[in-house]
């Protein structure tokens, strides 16, 4: 049976994707990879990959009011919880930008003037990398369905892990504490929170941890760019010790990370002996022990 590790951070820009890409290299051949950061998908930039298959993702729905049939009674307008229905020349229309496709307007319309149609909200990709299969997505702007896409990506990855007897599904998680974050951590073996030793990074970390706690997922923590604020780094370490979260180590600020990224590779690919690479390797070994 495979295990699942989600790498999270509470917000973007903490080095989560760099860490995931480096882990892919370290776990080469044993993993299936998921980019669950579907709203700002970047992992594909660092992983040499070939797209083998793509599928349209039919997600959210949108309501449409037929102006021929609408009598302008306003019932739908009254009932829509999302302010998606607007009055126009004595009739009503749906603003696609606000509509969440809940179907209430269709339900309440006395003359059946409303239809709710499912629509494609993005594409799912099945790719192959030197490290293992890789599932990622691209969503169209304004999408509502990040959580559903993440769930689907994880299902595809689970199928692949079973079929190919892989040990681990590695998930690059999204920022935030909403649907997508929930979908990327329910049922996983462990969450690795990548924290940043800044006042805002501290709050982001606490939010990520409280979400993982809520879903009763085991938590490990590491700190990136630890030397920016050594005091806060030790505060994070102490916080972990006191609350029984596994503190797995720190990664120093290291220019080689950006240099490697500009070559579309992870720091471990290009500068295996750099301070950041060595630190990442230690954290990888530690997290594997925890699984």
């Amino acid at each position: 049976m495979y295990k699942q590790l989600t790498i999270m951070s509470g917000k973007g820009g903490t080095g989560k994707t760099t860490l995931t890409a480096s882990f892919c290299r370290l776990a080469q051949g044993r993993i299936v990879i998921v980019d669950a950061d579907v709203d700002a998908a970047n992992l594909h930039i660092l992983l040499e990959h070939k797209i083998e298959k793509s599928e349209e993702f039919i997600g959210g729905a949108i309501a449409y009011i037929d102006p021929e049939q609408c009598t302008g009674c306003g019932e739908c307008f009254q009932r829509c919880q999302f302010d998606a229905i607007r009055a126009l020349n004595g009739k009503y229309i749906v603003s696609e930008r606000e509509c969440e496709g809940c179907g209430v307007c269709e339900l309440v319309c006395p003359v059946d003037a409303v239809t709710v149609k499912k629509e494609s909200v993005g594409k799912l990709f099945h790719s192959i990398t030197p490290y293992g299969r890789f599932f990622h997505a691209q969503l169209y702007p304004g999408g509502e369905s990040s959580g559903q896409v993440v769930t689907l990506l994880r299902e595809r990855a689970e199928d692949a892990a079973v079929a190919e007897h892989k040990e681990l599904i590695l998930i690059d998680g999204p920022p935030g504490i909403g649907c997508a974050a929930v979908a990327s951590l329910t049922g996983v073996t462990k969450v690795l929170v990548v924290a940043e030793p800044t006042v805002s990074g501290w709050h982001d970390m606490l939010r990520a941890i409280s979400l993982a706690d809520f879903f009763r997922v085991g938590i490990c923590v590491c700190v990136n760019r630890a030397d920016i604020n050594p005091e806060l780094t030790s505060q994070i370490e102490q916080f972990c010790r006191e609350n029984q979260y596994q503190f797995l180590g720190t990664i120093p600020q290291d220019d080689s990370v950006i240099k490697a990224q500009l070559k579309a590779q992870s720091v471990l690919d290009v500068y295996p002996d750099s301070p950041a690479s060595r630190a990442i390797e230690n954290i990888f070994n530690a997290v594997i022990q925890e699984l």
Binding site: D39, A40, R97, E98, G142, G143, E144, S146, G176, G178
Partner: peptide
Amino acid sequence: CPPGTAHPMVKAVD
């Protein structure tokens, strides 16, 4: 605004 290009960002920037 919230990060990304999904619904929350669109709502904030609109």
